[in-house]
Computed example of a mutant assay.
Amino acid sequence: MIMLDTALEGKEAVFGRFSMDVHKHGLSLGGNWEYDFGSFDQIIWQEQGESIYLRLPFATIRGKLDHDETVIQFKTPYLIKHVLNIGLDYDSNSLLSAVGLNQFQAPLDTDGHIPHRDRWKQVGEHLIEQLTPYVY
């Protein structure tokens, strides 16, 4: 994981508007959200089952995430690398995987080593700079 030092931390946004505005930059609401916190994610590199994500975690400060008017406040953004398990899954659910009923496998590594850290840090910080018009 690479923590990013940006001006985004502590900034606020209206959830529905921010979601629509940043979608064109490739960001979307991460799947692990709850009503009072979540993250916006973007894949910034992907190759052979390995992905580097830009993650913008946030907490709700007014409202819940099932309303567009909810106000969110950003926490420290970071980069994370996932290494997917692209082979066969040899556990008790293998039959389900083989017939296509169990499409999700746990990643081999949810926080893999990111080579060339300075380069990726610059990429992440540059992408976040593009989002400053959408926060206050």
Rank of each mutant, 00 (worst) to 15 (best):
H126A: 14
V99T: 13
F58R: 08
D118P: 00
V22N: 04
Q130I: 01
N32S: 11
S51Y: 07
G100E: 10
L56D: 11
G87S: 12
V123W: 01
V71F: 02
N85L: 10
N93L: 14
G10F: 08
A7C: 00
F15R: 02
V83S: 08
G87H: 05
D5T: 10
G63L: 07
L65T: 13
H126Q: 13
D91R: 06
H126G: 10
F18T: 08
L79H: 02
E47F: 11
E50Q: 12
L56R: 11
D111L: 04
L127D: 04
L131M: 15
F15E: 01
Y90Q: 06
F37A: 03
T110P: 11
A7I: 08
M20Q: 15
K64G: 11
L65E: 09
Q103S: 15
G124H: 01
I44D: 08
L8T: 03
D109P: 01
I2E: 08
I2H: 03
N85W: 08
T76W: 00
N85A: 14
L65N: 10
H116I: 06
Q105K: 15
K81A: 10
P115L: 01
E9S: 08
D41W: 02
G10W: 07
T60C: 15
Q42F: 01
G26D: 06
D21Y: 11
Q103R: 15
T60R: 04
R119C: 03
M20I: 15
Q42E: 12
K121F: 00
L54F: 06
I61R: 11
V71D: 02
T110M: 09
A59V: 12
V83C: 07
H126D: 10
L56F: 12
E12C: 09
G26T: 03
T6V: 06
L8E: 04
N93V: 04
E47Y: 11
F104C: 03
Q122V: 05
R17I: 14
D41T: 09
H116S: 14
Y136K: 14
E47D: 13
Q42Y: 02
Q73N: 02
F37V: 00
S92H: 06
A98K: 13
L4P: 09
D118R: 10
Q103E: 15
